[in-house]
């Protein structure tokens, strides 16, 4: 190794290190580049399509659109959804199939969106809630239809 090469090596090495230090120095002095957020205080608005959990939409009259066709149950890869049906008497005196319980196991759900796609009446949708932690696993099993709710008029 010649002496010139030796000095050149040192020069290049020091130069590359100083360039690196310039970069970190830039971020040290430019605080506007900071991108982190104070999480619980500042919450980011999540995207509209963000898949947090499955919800059954109810309107103001406490009516939903689920006919109990179990398309979502069949589409689900993990057995997350269980639909318990019952037979209701319509005013005309006919028996009609309706949901008794829409059981949703959040602990099994992988948010794959296949149930939403499968639903023929757009009864279920994905909600943006993401803070699901609870102390007991049993709390993650939810019944999605609200008590006393019934199917919307005209949805078959």
């Amino acid at each position: 190794m010649s002496a010139i090469q030796y000095i050149k090596d040192i020069y290049n090495a020091v130069k590359s290190l100083l360039i690196g230090m310039k970069q970190t120095g830039y971020y040290f002095t430019h605080h506007k580049e900071i991108i982190t957020q104070n999480y619980p205080e500042e919450k980011q608005q999540l995207a509209e399509r963000f898949r947090g959990e499955v919800v059954l939409t109810h309107d103001s009259n406490n009516e939903h659109k689920c006919t109990g066709c179990t398309a979502c149950e069949l589409a689900c890869p993990n057995g997350t959804i269980k639909i318990v049906t019952k037979f209701e008497l319509t005013p005309e005196g006919k028996k009609k199939k309706a949901i008794d319980k829409f059981v949703y196991h959040l602990e099994l759900c992988t948010m794959c969106n296949l149930c939403i796609v499968a639903c023929p009446t757009d009864a279920i949708k994905m909600d943006q809630a993401f803070e699901h932690s609870v102390f007991d696993r049993s709390q993650l099993t939810k019944v999605l239809n609200k008590p006393g709710s019934k199917i919307m008029e005209g949805v078959e």
Binding site: R49, F50, M111
Partner: peptide, 18 residues
């Protein structure tokens, strides 16, 4: 993060897209 935000907008997930 910028990319995952873009993904989130369209796909609804940040990591496991499906």
């Amino acid at each position: 993060e910028t990319i995952t935000d873009i993904m989130e907008d369209t796909c609804g997930a940040r990591l496991t897209m499906n």
